[in-house]
Write a protein that binds this DNA or RNA. Structure first.
Lengths: 177, 177
DNA sequence: AACATTAATGCAATTTTTTGCATAAAGAAT
DNA sequence: ATTCTTTATGCAAAAAATTGCATTAATGTT
């Protein structure tokens, strides 16, 4: 389980609320990690109980108060020690491929429509990632050096999405033919 | 949850035991679906209880008897109806990226070693997938047509792995620089 | 000859994730 | 004016996945 460490890594960069983390995962970092809001809030609670993170309340009127979490010294220690262990290759469970594999039980139009849907989503994501990349590329050399590692992960997102789109194109043509 | 449907899809092609399914997921179909043996056995039990699949015992001496499952009529019906609904884009949770993102808390050698490890795994997988592709490409036109949809999913595996390797190369160079 | 791997399944407990429900107000869109 | 989305959190229950343990024999490896 490394939702825990995904959260620690983000908090190590910048203090955030659960909601902020959620948005990061949903928007920019979806190529990286995904989680529902409940999972994040639960995990923050646990991390808090373990003293790996701590929070300050930011009072608001009407809305629930924001809990802004930051990583503690022992949080950094935990993260560092986790980083010294090796990680497992990530697990792929791709329902779209299941659907295509068994696609002879349905009609080609269904498959094509599904592919087109996913295509639009992936195109949108790729665009977003490329916009983030542009911002990075416009930074000074110094800042580029500073954010090099996150940028490498962004490149994974971009190359991954591009490959996905290449495949989808091929797939659509093969199904149409 | 579509382990259920991943299993149904495979059984629709060919009756198999839990162990057979496990091997398929571990070997050829890892780009597609992954599951532990316990999960598969549990799921087979549930599917059996729902009458979506049924099994015959193949007796063996010494080893536990093989249970060879095949899909039932209502299993095919369930699968068909599932195929008519849309599927969610698959969820990415990539611990390697978490590690790289937070890599400033460890040393470059650690990151490079980790990347090299994963690189070897991915190279191996790609090779396997390409061998399967070769077999497909040597089939008669008729059989190629028959297995077109599974082949499309295989292409996803191949393009995905190639993109991964391209990225890893880039990443290693950036970290070394 | 000893040891590791493959074949073949499974129970039980724990951990992780998802689903469903709930609240409340500001701001944006039609 | 009304409806939709965003902001901001959380509990409780159910479902799914993982971890740990257990068995038996053949085959492959050093």
């Amino acid at each position: 389980m490394s939702l825990k460490h995904a959260i620690l890594v983000l908090l190590e960069t910048e203090p955030s609320s659960g909601y902020d983390l959620l948005k990061q995962f949903n928007n920019s970092l979806g190529y990286f990690w995904n989680a529902k809001h409940q999972q994040i809030y639960q995990q923050l609670k646990l991390l808090s109980a373990e003293n790996l993170i701590e929070y300050k309340l930011e009072e608001q009127h009407g809305k629930p108060d924001r809990k802004v979490y930051k990583i503690t010294k022992s949080g950094v220690a935990e993260l560092s020690s986790w980083l010294n262990n090796s990680v497992k290759p990530n697990k792929i469970n791709d329902a779209l491929l299941v659907k295509i594999y068994g696609g002879h039980l349905t009609d080609a139009d269904n498959l094509l429509a599904e592919l087109e849907n996913h295509l639009h989503l992936h195109q949108k994501v790729l665009l977003q990632l490329k916009q983030i990349e542009q911002k990075y590329l416009n930074l000074t050399e110094e800042l580029k050096e500073k954010y090099k590692l996150p940028y490498i992960t962004l490149r994974r997102g971009i190359l991954g999405e591009e490959a996905w789109l290449t495949w989808a194109d091929e797939a659509i043509n093969m199904i149409k033919k």
